[in-house]
Design a protein around this nucleic acid. Sequence first.
RNA 1: GUGGGUGUAGCUCAAGGGUUAGAGCAUCAGGCUGUGGACCUGGGGGCUGAGGGUUCGAAACCCUUCACCCACCCCA
Length: 424
Amino acid sequence: MERLRTLRGFRDIFGEEIQKFKFIEDVSRKFFDIFGYKEIEIPVLEKTELFVRSIGDTTDIVEKEMFTFIDTGGDSVSLRPEATAGMVRAYLQEGMYAKERVSKIFTIGSMFRHERPQKGRFREFHQIDVEAFGADDPLIDAELLWMITLILGEIKVTGYSIEVNSVGCKECRESFRNILISYFETKKDLLCEDCLRRFERNPLRIFDCKNAQCIDVTQNSPFLYDSLCEGCVSHFNIFLKHLSNFNIEVSINKRLVRGLDYYTGTVFEVTSVDLGAQKAFIAGGRYNGLVEEMGGPPTPAIGFAIGVERLALISTATIFKQGPSYFFAYVGEKAKNYLVPILRSFVSKGLSLKFAYEGKSLKSQMRYADSMGSDYVLILGDDEIKKGIIVMRDMRRKMQYELPLDPEDMIRESLKLTNNFTVS
RNA sequence: GUGGGUGUAGCUCAAGGGUUAGAGCAUCAGGCUGUGGACCUGGGGGCUGAGGGUUCGAAACCCUUCACCCACCCCA
């Protein structure tokens, strides 16, 4: 019989990794609360049209990476490949724009893309997604990056770098597109196959190519960055000024363009050299036109997403356990009868008391206790029962004490001995 | 979708045509009949990813297929 396993690109997340995930989420939630972001859960499955309209129908994501199927009602539905589309939908559907001037929301959950897995890339992956609607002030652009640096600091990520750029508003992007097309038109034969495709659909993306010859071609090409309109230049400069006031080091990467159609103005990426080819672990930017395109009032907006798997790969945080843990070791059936009342007392006090279900030799139980990292082992056998006591062994100091056998007294006395407990 | 690499015990890996496929770690037991980590001894564990072929003989060679990893593409 063949054993079933997960689908390609889907994984079980457990053990140390899930602890790291939870830690990353906890730290993020803490800072989101400080900065006034409210949590929202949105559906994993939405109408395909939502993603087509927001992300763009010629992007790779919607063209070939979505898990799309026809449900029994005949609708085309898709597993979300990213969160922003659904967040915009929720912002409009729940009427947030009418209730507050600025809506700051975040969500945490799985995204799905039908890609070939590699280091730091899976078909089901987790994002922490943050969106702020209703403010065009570059201060909020800078504030987002500040919040990111605070989170990364607490998660103990070092050696990352932040790249920023502006991809301009609709107007300056449209005029630049023409400039770019006429430039590349003469150099078509120098571009790689992929870039020829990009030339047809989204010439901006040629700047993203890693092919040496293409990089060469773009070396002397006009940059969007250099032909931004007055308003975009001033917005970007004020953004940079704020960043320096926040003491945030960034580098301007004129080649940085994003793969989703909705971005306008500020875009940014946080990368780490420790990640392999998929080095961006946080990315985002402004999308001032999207809300209106989705049928809402004209609303400036900005957001970013954290790739949790990638962040977990580079976080050097170690998860500390808190509080002492106890183990109950018993010799003989008579002693085992004392387990339940003792266990109940420990649990009611919120203390961790482990034990072996099929207790074998004491030696075996001691090994078990040790392998689970128990700090104290309570040992009970006929001798102790006769004397009305229980032995508590301090595993690290290799010292033993006698405690009363009555559970309440036992806990009280043991806490006296362990109240200077510190995690090593 | 394309390319490269790897599939042998729970994990990391040996064996490169020739008895019964090994080692370390992990696990269980014993040494120590009631005391953990170190050490010693032993036990359990495998259709060598799957299917076909070549051969007296295949984990090994050939074909097919599947899976995983890395990279391209793209992206968090």
